[in-house]
């Protein structure tokens, strides 16, 4: 999905009130915290991601939005469930919001603008938000008790729409034959390579590898529980 700047701003303003409610609900679900937070640990094996996290912390994003996107300030937008982050594919929407801020708001304190940051810094912040959203969403999906029984035909349709351009059912069957059923969900929604440090060996940086990582990252951020249930139901039929 690609947004123009104008539509991004319109979306941003429309969703402002929604963020507030979502943030309050999210905050209400947080247990009392005791002890000290270390924003920098665990140190990630991927230095690019670690640098992105440090940029996110250094410019104060973590103070309000939380380093793990769990809101620390009740007024802040809940980035883990933000439609705006969901609408962002390449960092363009997030970078634009950072550049202009959200001065028009019903909240006490508007989101400030970060117009003096470099393109690289803005991209780093967007990268961390997407990575952290993927991790947070993965945890939420794994906490689902799978009470929803997946629909095999809906899963097949999802597979054909979102997976078949890269994977055939046979290749999936081959890949998952050694995976235990209990581990299948995690294997499908967060393939192991998403957790590995990307190589800068040019012979391994094929277009397929780069786009595959990006696409699975986007899928991980945005799967719904129903989609996961349907997809799993279908994939179990081809195992």
């Amino acid at each position: 999905m690609t947004l123009t700047w104008k539509s991004a701003v319109a979306l941003m303003l429309t969703l402002s009130a929604t963020f507030h409610v979502a943030a309050a609900q999210h905050e209400a679900a947080r247990p009392a915290e005791r002890g000290v937070i270390n924003f920098l640990t665990p140190i990630l094996p991927d230095p690019v991601l670690q640098h992105s996290k440090e940029t996110y912390v250094l410019y104060g994003c973590a103070y309000c939005h939380g380093v793990d996107l769990r809101v620390r300030n009740g007024e802040a937008a809940d980035l883990l469930h933000s439609p705006l982050v969901r609408a962002d594919v390449d960092g363009g929407v997030i970078s634009h919001v950072l550049r202009v801020g959200i001065p028009q708001t019903a909240k006490l304190s508007p989101m400030p603008q970060f117009s003096d940051l470099s393109d690289r810094e803005l991209a780093d912040i967007a990268r961390w938000i997407h990575y952290s959203k993927g991790q947070g969403h993965f945890a939420e999906l794994m906490q689902d008790r799978d009470v929803v029984v997946g629909d095999i035909s809906a899963g097949k349709a999802y597979f054909e729409k979102s997976c078949s351009m890269c994977h055939s059912p046979a290749s999936i069957a081959s890949a998952i034959k050694v995976v235990k059923d209990a581990d299948l969900k995690a294997f499908i929604i967060r393939p192991a390579f998403l957790q590995s440090t990307p190589s800068f060996d040019v012979s391994r940086r094929t277009e397929k590898a780069v786009t595959g990582r990006a696409k699975h990252g986007t899928l991980l951020e945005n799967y719904t529980s129903a989609e996961v249930a349907d997809l799993l139901a279908f994939i179990k039929t081809i195992k």
């Binding site: 009392a32 915290e33 005791r34 002890g35 000290v36 937070i37 924003f39 973590a62």
Partner: peptide, 13 residues
């Protein structure tokens, strides 16, 4: 103290 969550349990810290 951004690294110290605000709660009564952390008051002594």
């Amino acid at each position: 103290y951004h690294d110290l969550p605000q709660s009564d349990q952390n008051r002594s810290i």
